[in-house]
Amino acid sequence: MAKLQKSIDKRTALLRATLCLINNGGIQEASMAKVAKQANVSPATIYLYFENKQDLVNQLYIEVKTDFTSKVFQGYDAEAPVKKSFEQIWFNMSAYKSKQKEEASFLSQCDNTPLIDEETLQEGLKLLKPLFDLWLRGQNEGIIKNISPFLLYAYTIYPMAFLTNMQKRELYQLNNEVLQTAYQAAWDAIKV
């Protein structure tokens, strides 16, 4: 049992090191040697857990995206009214992005650069299915504009990501009032 835990700890350390290096210098800074050094393991150890650098980054993405969606959909009730459900998801996302800054930054980079491969990106999108299903239900009920889910995401989620990035850079302060206003703007952008 101790050996298994040690193995899990090494893999976790490698993933955390990769996350830190990518966030602080981009993918080019996350060389296998630097990842191993930061994780305090030998470079050969990486290959016990990951095929190559792309596999390492892909697995990191899926782990972070899985954690993200588990928190985003926490308490989500697919039977609740569309607006109430969307509000809960939106505020859960906002809380995640505010509290899990490193992970949120990594996900943002993955969304905006070719960091991960297309197959892994599609796997990550599947994790957002409850949100896409909610929007589809809202469209079917005539509550949400009948536009692409990617446009819906662009008008509701990307502005939140922008605001949290501005807060991270200490250019803007998010508080409850700002979040309420931002949520209302997001809802107004997609409601019929």
Rank of each mutant, 00 (worst) to 15 (best):
Q59N: 01
Y49E: 06
Q122T: 14
T18D: 02
F50Q: 01
Q100F: 11
G124L: 07
A17W: 01
R11C: 01
A182N: 01
M32N: 15
T164C: 05
Q184T: 06
N40L: 15
D77W: 15
S105T: 13
R169Q: 10
P159F: 12
Y158C: 05
F73L: 01
N175Y: 09
Q139M: 09
L125H: 13
K129E: 15
V35Y: 03
L136H: 13
K6P: 06
V35M: 04
K53H: 13
D133T: 08
A39N: 04
D55H: 07
S105C: 13
K71S: 01
K126L: 05
A80G: 08
L107W: 08
L115C: 10
P81W: 14
E102Y: 09
G138Y: 01
A185S: 13
I8Q: 07
N140M: 14
Q139Y: 07
Q139T: 09
V178F: 01
L14M: 14
T12P: 06
N140V: 11
N146Y: 06
I157T: 05
I190F: 01
A13R: 02
I157A: 08
F132M: 11
V35H: 01
L48D: 14
Y158Q: 15
S31T: 15
A78H: 14
E123L: 03
G142S: 09
A78C: 08
Y76W: 15
L115R: 05
L19Y: 04
A189T: 04
E177N: 11
F162Y: 12
S31Y: 11
K53E: 12
L14S: 06
S70L: 03
K97N: 10
P81R: 09
F86P: 00
F106L: 11
D67N: 11
Q122Y: 03
K101N: 08
S105F: 15
R11T: 04
P130I: 04
